[in-house]
Each structure stands twice: as C-alpha cells, then as structure tokens.
C-alpha cells in the first residue's frame, strides 16, 4: 500500500462530483473509499444530499442552490462545483497506513440445491469441478460489501475465488427471484426483489434483504459469509 493517495476528481453533473481512486476492484481501494465517506459524513456540509460509495469512487450529490446560498453566501467567488471539489479533497486522508475498517460479519444461509439454483450445474461444468466444490469455494470466503446499487438493498460483494468466477449471461433472464444468490466475474450478490438479471444464479437465501420499512440488511462496508443449508431447512426458514 502506498503512503499517499492518488485519484482523479471531476463533476459528473452540475450537482454531483466524483472522486475516483482508479484501479481494479480491491479491498485496499475500497477501504480508502469508506475512509473518505466517513470523513465526509463527519465534516458534513449543508446542501450535500447524498454520498454514494462505489468500488473505487465516492460521489457527492448536492443541491446547487442550497450550497450557493449557505456556503457561498450568494456570491460567485468560486463555482459551486469547485467549492464541493475542494471540500472532498480536504477530506482525503493522505496517510492510509494503519487504519482499519471494522464492521460486523453477517452470516447468510444459502440453499445451493439446483431447484433454486438454476445455474449451479453449468457453473460447475464451465470450471470442470463438481457442484459440491462450487458450494465449498463459495462458502469458504468472507466477502466485503463493496457497494450498494442496481436495486434498493442489492449488495455488490467480492472477491469470488478465481476457480468459480463466471461471466454474466449474454442475455439476462427476464425474472430472477428475490433471494437468488449470483456470481458475475469477481462479484457475488443477492437479488433483494424479483427483477430481470444476468448473474449466474448458484443459490437462494430465505432471508429478506430489505424489510417493509425499507431497511436493508447488507450495507456498504459490511462483511458477509455464506452458510450452506439444505432444501428442507430453506423451506422451513422461508415459511417463517
């Protein structure tokens, strides 16, 4: 890990600025993302409406008029996007050594039975291993929630063992059921609701990823481990 942080920073709209650390998916870069998010939340700025972390970037969405009035006191001394850019840059911690991101580990029960896992056999076939081996490799790792996106409560997790990394389907399925656990390249994720989707479905969890009050189970920065359960257990838990 380098001692200083390099990044690019640019507006993505007239009311949003992105700081992009670059590079591939990695835990180190994602740690920097959440350190920056924490610093921005701590040093909150009136007019900022959303702080959106992704794999290797943080996007700050703001209400232009509020920032202009509250922060710049209605004066055009500096463009608002430049003011926001400075605020973000002032919160980038240049020293990234010795900082730990501590979060809870969440255990997710997953049934890998082919009746709820339409792609588990073809994934096994593509890698010339058994379905049982796919389950072993998928449950062996602790995954990081790198970000939420796509659907409310959908968690992009990684990094999947290279022996079971599988690209998305060329043509997405019109319907993937809520709770379906999928793989897409280095990523794994769970569909929080019924949706069209292209990920390779290798299992299904009986847990609800989002409740009726729109609270989500897998928040960015959390750690997740999958625990294999039988079809019987799945059906029992699913009824609860």
């Amino acid at each position: 890990m380098s001692a200083t942080t390099s990044y690019q920073i640019y507006p993505i709209s007239d009311q949003a600025v992105t700081l992009d650390f670059g590079g591939p998916i990695s835990l180190e870069t994602n740690d920097r993302v959440y350190m920056l998010v924490d610093a921005l939340i701590k040093n909150k700025l009136e007019g900022v409406t959303d702080i959106i972390p992704a794999y290797n970037s943080v996007t700050v969405v703001y209400d232009y008029v509020t920032v202009y009035k509250r922060q710049l006191k209605n004066e055009n001394t500096i463009p608002v996007y430049a003011f926001i850019k400075n605020w973000i840059e002032n919160n980038v911690n240049q020293d990234v050594s010795g900082i730990e991101v501590l979060k809870n580990e969440i255990i997710i029960p997953v049934c890998y039975d082919k009746t709820v896992a339409p792609d588990i056999e073809s994934v096994a076939e593509q890698h010339q291993i058994s379905a049982q081996k796919v389950i072993e490799l998928h449950t062996a790792k602790t995954y990081r929630v790198f970000m939420n996106g796509f659907l409310p409560g959908f968690a992009y997790m990684g990094i999947v063992d290279p022996a079971i990394q599988t690209p998305r389907h060329q043509n997405p399925r019109p319907l993937v059921q809520a709770g379906s656990v999928g793989i897409a390249g280095v990523q794994t994720g769970i569909y929080p609701c019924n949706s069209p989707g292209g990920w390779q479905i290798i299992g299904k969890t009986p847990l609800a990823l989002i409740d009726e009050n729109e609270n989500i189970l897998l928040t960015p920065g959390s750690f997740v481990k999958f625990n294999a359960i039988s079809l019987l257990e799945f059906e029992k838990l699913n009824k609860q």
């Binding site: 993505i12 709209s13 992704a54 794999y55 996007t59 970000m147």
Partner: peptide, 10 residues
C-alpha cells in the same frame, strides 16, 4: 467499467 454513481440526466 467498474460500477460507479450516476445521476438524473447522465
């Protein structure tokens, strides 16, 4: 590309 935030109007 790696997924990143988008906004209304992107």
């Amino acid at each position: 590309l790696l997924s990143t935030a988008v906004t209304r109007g992107t």
